[in-house]
Amino acid sequence: MSQAAPTVDATRAGTFDAIQSALRRNTWTLGLLVFLAILLVFTRLIQPTYGATGIQGLANSVLPLALAATAQAIVVISGGIDLSIGSMMALTSVVAASNMQDQSDLFSVGVVIGVLLLGLLLGAVNGAVIVVTRVPDIVVTLAMAFVWSGCALLVLRTPGGGSAQWLEDLVLGPLGNEWIPKAGVVLVLIVAAIWIPVSRSRFGLSLYAIGSNQLAAFRSGVSVGRTKIFAYMLGGLFSALGGLALTASTGRGTPVPGPYTLLSVAAIVLGGVSLAGGRGGVFGPLIGVVILQLIRTDMTFLKLDPNLATVAQGLILIGVVMLGSLLQQRRSRA
């Protein structure tokens, strides 16, 4: 007994330490979750009828931006930034909408697969151009944003096309219980199914490595170029998923890019991804997206000018980054 006691204590201390360090590592995400909970309670207080339908609407409006934020998060973790996400979403959305209209279900499955491959290809082009030309990411993706939105206009001059019924059914409406929106489940499943295997793989490690210190990563044998292209391909894939979500939730394709590029940057910063690269994950940004959307909803409930929501989003973006950099300065000084 006297022998066993220290071991038990040690194990307990071990678990405690593990929990503590996990808490410390995820402070930001946990803080966001708390903030989100407070925001939900607040929403319920100012709008007592806010319930299952509200959650459904929230999930539906969040889906495209959440996928865009995931795309942005992956690219930023690898030390880049992708300003062409909105354009890639527009392009994939119109390609999907124009090819799926009045087609059989089987054909539309093929279209969806094709669009996802297209997303990978677009991302690969972004990444390859960056790696080959050695022009800064921000310039290349800014330029590619022109190219992709131009392509989208070539595919479809005005909003149009259609979505397959099964695709709409996939994201619209509740799943079993009225409190569980399909869009939310689909989102979590997709992100988890792609991100968790990736982040646990060698490539995932390389992704963080080149994001935090490219030279060190290179010297420890990481193929920087290949990893970078891979990150942009994942970004393209998630943009294509976002484009499909747009088509599914609106039932058509719009060739003009939405505000997704800028809002995705806001969401990832709010979600605890460092713009310097190498730090953060994809689940923080997802919570960030929900918070951004909920603030917008709340402002309508408060009968405030909806345009003030834009102001609020801008202020939140700036405020969060300021806070982050202040904390970082304090930490580096300490």
């Binding site: 930034i81 921000i138 713009l275 102001v311 989003q313 980054v321 300021m322 950099s325 202040l326």
Partner: peptide, 18 residues
């Protein structure tokens, strides 16, 4: 505050637009 200029001016453009 050493905010990245891209983010700062992006946020400012949202504020001004709103």
């Amino acid at each position: 505050f050493k905010v990245h200029p891209l983010i700062m001016t992006l946020g400012m453009s949202l504020v001004v637009l709103g």
